[in-house]
Amino acid sequence: MTAADVATARRQLPVRLLLVAGVVLVAVGVLAVAGLQGSLVYYRTTSELVADPELQGQRVRLGGLVVAGTVGTTAEGVRFELTDGVQDVLVINAGQPRGVFQEGQGAVVEGSLGADGVFRSDVLLVRHDNEYRAPAGGTGRPAEDGG
């Protein structure tokens, strides 16, 4: 490298740095704007959904606990009630649940609230809690419970 080349490299360097810094700034800006607009809210609670008439008919994610005793099958899927402890919402999901869907555990559904107060969804995700324990009826150890 000659002295001129070195000088050229020195001049080019800030351009690259500025490019990197620019990309980082844009990314941070997009995240900040998204956060301010509330699009970082991954799901609404049942109370928020019912309290906000603007959300009716819009495609949203709804999260809550599956109320015990409300799970039933329909012709094309499953129906159950979701609750945040205050407000219950009946959910009719098109499609059978995957994952470890069960009463008393969390679920997030994607769909919209109809004028009849029923939330019709076509995506059902399980949101389990952060507690880990052996099943009530056994040790849960494969060797002792026969797998």
Binding site: P135, G140, R141
Partner: peptide
């Protein structure tokens, strides 16, 4: 794989933890 019980809710996949 041996001593820890299988999780009551998640089953065997919880061992990925």
């Amino acid at each position: 794989l041996v001593a820890a019980p299988t999780d009551a809710v998640q089953g065997e996949p919880q061992r990925l933890m």
